[in-house]
Structure formats: C-alpha cells, structure tokens
Simulated scan of single mutants.
Amino acid sequence: MTGVVNVFVVSPDTHSERRIDPHITVEQLKGKLELITGIPVSHQALSLLASQQDSRVLTELTDESKPLGFYGLADWQVIKVTDTNPSDTLTGQLTDVSQVEKFEISEAEYAQRNDTVLAYKQRNKIGRFSGKEEAKQEDQSEMNVDVPIGSRCEVESTEPGLSKRGTVRFVGPTKFSKGLWVGVEYDEPLGKNDGSVQGERYFSCRQNYGVFVKPDKVKVGDFPVEELDLDDEEM
C-alpha cells in the first residue's frame, strides 16, 4: 500500500503503532479501531495529538464523513481514542478500579507473614538472602541465556494492551550494573536511550528507541511490527 502514514493509536487499554491510509474516512477508521481498542464505534471520540512527546491536541476528528487527510494526518502523530461511556464498555469495566477497596499492609506486617514472596526467598536463601557462592552461581546461570543478537523479541510490560516489540541489539555485561543485560531497539519510541548509558555505547539506535532489560523480561520469537491493514476490499 502506498501513501500510508505511521501513527500511534492510544486508548485507555491499548497503545500501538499503526499504518493508516489518509484517504479513508473517520467513520471507516472507527470501525477498525473498535477491533483494536474494544471501544464501540458509537462510544469513540477521536483526537489528533502532535506526537507522543507533545500531547497538544491539534484537532478533534468529529466529522465522520471526512477523510483523515482532511485533518492533516502526518507521520508519528497520535490518534487518541476516548471512551465516552466506559461504564457500558467491557474494557472500561475491567480497568475501572474506582469502586474497588484498596488493600494495604505495613512493612512490619508483611515481614511477619509466611505466605509471601519475601518469606519464600528467606526459606530458600534466594537473592539477597543467599550466600556469596549461591549468588555467584546465579550470575553464572544468567550468562547462559539464549537471546540471539538480531532476533525479534517482545519485552514484558506492566501496562495492559501495550506491545513493546523490537530487535535484540546487545547481550552481555555492562558498566552501569552487574549481571547480564539485553539491549533492545524498540519499533516505537518507548525506550529510555539511544543504546548508550552513562557515556558508554553498547549499540546504536534513535533516541528513546533503546532500552536495557534483564533476560527474563525478554521473549524471543516471531514478533512482526504491528500494522493496521486498511485495504478498501476489507471495508
């Protein structure tokens, strides 16, 4: 497809990079966005933001009969999808925690429990509760991870619906912290650096596309760049 633009689509539950034909109408786009965001077409309010770093609202996509090009859609802008009726949407109900009572426990109470991760680590001498020899063995086993440089991967994310995909660019020890680290070049500017940390370069990429994570946060596999297919024959 020619003439497409690369944009980011964000909603309360999703965040992804998409390729969109500026000739389609706002109405047609909403139909596709329902499959991505889970928000019904009738509940969608679309805003066009300048970029991920600049959250200024350039315009509201209010006329569903207009093509996206009418609103000046350009590369790396952000289409923000707002759910105007989250109480009636499944995704909104799942993420609305305003009515959930918050459970809190003090550090002292947590330390006294025997059914916690902390207690498990103490019983099994894991992490900071292990001796020097055990710690050395853990570091050695970490060095044996199978994360090939150049392979496609997905990095574990704490944000629901956020796919953090990229390419492995570095695997090895670093100067900024002990142990083995994996350097990833993200497909989207979701990183923290350009492949260098504290003046030491480990690989090169665009600013905010690079990140270093521990091997257990990386899943290697066939993870292509996510695209939004908007061929006319699928309308």
Rank of each mutant, 00 (worst) to 15 (best):
L73K: 03
I39W: 01
T95M: 09
W76T: 03
E64A: 14
P86F: 00
L49N: 04
D75Y: 02
G92C: 05
D96K: 09
I39H: 01
I39A: 01
N85T: 14
T82I: 10
A45G: 09
P40H: 08
P40A: 09
L61W: 03
V41Q: 10
G69T: 03
T91Q: 09
N85Q: 15
L49E: 02
T82W: 10
W76E: 15
D63F: 11
R56C: 05
V78M: 06
P86Q: 13
T62W: 11
E101K: 13
G72V: 01
S55P: 12
D96F: 04
L94C: 07
E64W: 04
V57W: 07
D63H: 08
Q93L: 15
D88H: 08
T95I: 11
T89W: 02
Q99G: 10
Q53F: 14
P86C: 07
L68Y: 04
L48I: 04
P86Y: 01
Q93F: 05
T91E: 11
G72Q: 05
E60M: 13
S65P: 09
S51H: 05
A50F: 08
Q44S: 08
I36W: 05
K80L: 13
Q52S: 10
V78H: 02
Q99C: 04
V57L: 03
V57A: 06
G38N: 00
G72Y: 10
D63K: 07
A50H: 10
S65Q: 15
Q44D: 08
